[in-house]
Design a protein around this nucleic acid. Structure first.
Lengths: 346, 346
DNA sequence: AATTTTTGCGAAAACGTTTTCGTGTTAACA
DNA sequence: TGTTAACACGAAAACGTTTTCGCAAAAATT
């Protein structure tokens, strides 16, 4: 087991100084061609590679991006990571991933763990608990220490940083309008509680689309899912709530859901009640993931272009890191949504 | 913007030496209570945190694990990462993620990028291209430089390192036997080409289960999917191949597929051909992901316990890193599979 | 031959820590 | 009072780089 070779060892072996070795390897003109070749040959032979940690310390930058997301087993977030990775790697950056698991404490902990020199900047999406508690001190502290943050998807408007968001409002409006254009008269909404900003915006999009029709809003048609007892494994509570929605609205002929799972669950219940999709009732979900594509019938969705979000976020961060100019000017990029029509709306 | 405070700055401010500050903060007995309190108070005020990079350089360990996977937008791999993260974080380790994208070059590149000091060890699953080319020099080099590797799922037996694998053979046998016990007489197999080791093992499990019945193997029932033209977006080629399988085997009354997608696609085609699931034909897939759970009908699967794999892999690596004893003894952990019965087999 | 210029290299500092060892001061002892 | 022990702290080295500066020898110029 040959340990990694260092400049010092090469220097000793060739009986020159460390500086000479360093310069020779970087093709400095100060070094004679003779020594240069000798050093480079030796280095190649022993497969010398400069130690990244030493470089990081010296340069006071790590060429590493910290990413904090609420959950990784989630098509949307993993697609975002793929986007981040893609552009980060192309620019010689590494990506270090932290999972908050939707918990405030883990979010803070993870950020503290990374903020002490391990990374140059953050890309993150805020955990539900943080959004609920509205405690944002960790973001502000990180920023005030000179470490840039880029937020995506779940963001907070009054924090000074770059942001990449989806046009949730328009996307949702587009979806509901599509249902209307297909002839739906009574459109249900399955959404989240309002503290999740994206859920709130999607709800607003729904409301505006309905009201634009000159119809009165029927709040019975809106279900704000209480996901306290809902987990990947336990969907009974979710199922009950959606069933209730159908029960209260027997004439419902369209459903817009703010995520794939809600939409699929709603379709399942509709089928159970003997409704034909899309003849009797149509469905649209938000977030274009693997579930929508392979559901039966396949689900019409609002695509968020998750990978693109990741790419944009990474670009924003790296631009700021590489040219540390324009310190005080922050950007918010809005990713346009796209309605992908599948069988659930015929 | 207050930059991060260092020992040096604290020392200067309090007019003591750097060593004193360092010792005071670590509660060394050498330091008088007076100075200790003074230093600690000051450090707290300025929110001092030791610089990780400096520590890494000094200790020659980074407390960071490098993970290389072929693809992150994949339920199985993201679950593994979640498992890795879970135990890594609990042990004070960070996780840095690299995606090979199933490409040999990117795998090598990513490993080189990380191997130069950025991490203490690797956890990885090998890319398809690497498996195809059978060029494993980068693994051997990394190992010979003293950096431990733990391979999971897609592994190579004759490389000296810890491994975590699924009992693909038994899992697949279990699945086929289940189909048989349900009365299936003509069971099709949708698998991958043989160079993917897990695919090959699953195929072998199928074969043995069939032959255990004393029935002759009918190779027409085995489809080794050529996924050259198959991508997430383009499934037509896959669809054609599976259709062909049905065409050649009109009496097929059971299908075992080595992943979720193949199974779902097969179910879809069966439905299209007017077959009732599970009455006319039953299905089992490998890999328990979100697709299986929410398919209609929900798909019986062989669960690999992906998260557990990640946890085991991380534990294996961290154990080796923290007690650098037993250098030469490597373990292979086999994760038992579990048959999760859902509606596709009644 | 005396000066200046060029060439080739090394010493040392810096990045931020921790730790070993040395040393001066005070307290305890004979 | 002189010796030893305990105490409190600082200097310096080390981790592996890069870079600035200084300096000797060789080459070029007067």
């Amino acid at each position: 087991m040959k340990r990694k070779v260092t400049l010092k060892q090469i220097a000793k072996e060739l009986d020159v100084s460390i500086s000479t070795v360093s310069k020779a390897l970087r093709n400095s003109l100060e070094i004679s061609e003779d020594t240069r070749e000798k050093v480079q040959a030796f280095a190649k032979l022993y497969n010398y590679r400069p130690n990244n940690i030493a470089l990081s310390l010296k340069n006071r930058k790590t060429k590493t991006i910290g990413v904090i997301i609420p959950e990784i087993v989630h098509n949307f977030f993993s697609k975002v990571i793929r986007g981040i990775e893609l552009v980060a790697n192309a620019q010689g950056y590494n990506v270090i991933v932290g999972l908050s698991n939707e918990s405030f404490d883990k979010e803070v902990l993870n950020m503290e763990m990374l903020a002490n020199g391990s990374i140059d900047g953050f890309i993150l999406s805020i955990s539900k608990e943080t959004l609920l508690q509205q405690d944002y001190h960790h973001f502000n502290e990180t920023i005030s220490q000179g470490m840039p943050i880029v937020m995506f998807d779940r963001v907070i408007t009054d924090i000074n940083c770059d942001k990449v968001i989806v046009d949730d409002f328009e996307g949702s409006k587009k979806a509901v309008n599509h249902l209307i254009s297909k002839g739906c008269k009574s459109i249900g909404l399955v959404t989240t509680k309002d503290y999740v900003s994206v859920g709130r915006l999607r709800t607003q999009g729904y409301i505006e689309a309905i009201e634009d029709q000159g119809v009165d809003l029927n709040s019975d048609l809106i279900l704000k899912v209480d996901d306290k007892n809902v987990s990947e494994e336990h969907l009974e509570s979710l199922e009950k709530q959606i069933e209730q929605l159908f029960e209260s609205n027997p004439k419902m002929d369209g459903v817009f859901a703010v995520n794939e799972l809600y939409a699929l669950m709603a379709m399942k219940i509709a089928r159970k009640r003997g409704l034909k999709i899309p003849e009797d009732i149509r469905f649209i979900g938000f977030t274009d993931g693997v579930l929508s594509r392979h559901a039966t019938p396949s689900l019409t969705t609002v695509s968020q272009h998750a990978q693109k979000m990741g790419e944009k976020a990474a670009k924003l961060l790296i631009d700021r890191l590489d040219n540390d100019e324009d310190e005080e000017h922050f950007e918010t990029i809005i990713i346009e949504t796209e309605l992908i029509e599948r069988n659930s709306t015929e």
